[in-house]
């Protein structure tokens, strides 16, 4: 997920992506209740644990922005 997060930030100027090594920053692990890794938190409002495909990652980003998840499927590949 770390790699994907960086890729998302590369692809879009509105996105920033910080990967945190939790053993060095236990206070962050505690603040974000990291019980398993990788744990992904988006805008402090959406989160998931484990690896997911890029499309689901995008869905979580849209949820964090309060948008309909299915909007990302408007233009299927032709």
């Amino acid at each position: 997920m770390a790699r994907a997060a960086h890729a998302f930030a590369m692809a879009n100027p509105h996105i920033s992506a910080t990967v945190v090594e939790v053993e060095e920053f236990p206070e962050l692990a505690q603040r974000y209740r990291v019980m398993g890794v990788p744990k992904t938190v988006i805008n402090e409002t959406a989160e998931f644990t484990g690896a997911v495909p890029d499309e689901l990652f995008m869905t979580a980003i849209l949820q964090a922005l309060g948008k309909q998840a299915n909007e990302s499927n408007e233009q299927p590949e032709t």
Binding site: S16, A17, T18, V20, K39, T40, N43, E44, L65, E71
Partner: peptide, 12 residues
């Protein structure tokens, strides 16, 4: 679709 700031944190 993304017009507002998005901050992603990944804990590893």
């Amino acid at each position: 679709l993304i017009e507002a700031p998005v901050h992603i944190q990944v804990f590893v």
